[in-house]
Amino acid sequence: MSPLLRLAKSSLGKKYLMAFTGFGLFGFVVMHMLGNLQVFLGPDAINKYAHFLKSTPELLWGARLGLLAMVTVHFCVGIALAIENMQARDQEYAVKRAVKATLASRTMVVSGLIVLSFIIYHLAHYTLLTIHPEYRNLHDDLGRHDVYRMIVLGFSSPSVVSFYVISVGLLCFHLSHGIGAMFQSLGLKNEAYVERIDCLAKIVAVGLFIGYISIPLAVQIGMVK
């Protein structure tokens, strides 16, 4: 069997694919947050950043296609693994007790699927603008798309904010296990680092959560307007 075939067919290979794509998506989640946090620097900074991205299509589309590919692989391989994992036990226990396993580790499929549906909504909300086509017409004084206003408008609705906070929460919950598992799947853990990696994964997940939700909360309390 060729190495590539093994990568696609074996359980370990599939976990590598999950880890690689997970790592890429995690990188995006970090970059995206850093980009968004520019909202605290005022309209000019974030609109400039958005404009820069839009005016560099090779970067933007490169990233978009890459992300799409990674999401697709992460989703498809994840589903394939989930099916295999379910098939591996044909009869469930009458008494189920999760020994040591954290809730996050046991619900990766569920949290992943919910996060995926959020991503679709989120893209429709802010990227494709299908939910609010009027956002297309927001421009700042320099004629750039006014992303700042879009954010403020979008997060002015408490229901949108709560959905966003829950979803980002789930994403970070997914990552709180996923980051550590990624290192495990790629064999990058060992006795010396295992505890530090797991601890760091949780800190990063919490950090991401705080970073992300700080924006809608700031809009809600009127800090960003």
Binding site: S11, L12, K14, K15, L81, E84, N85, Q87, A88, R89, A98, V99, K100, A101, T102, S105, R106, M108, H177, G180, A181, Q184, S185
Partner: peptide
């Protein structure tokens, strides 16, 4: 099945 690193 495959490993989900639950630690059980």
């Amino acid at each position: 099945g495959a490993c989900t690193v639950t630690g059980s």
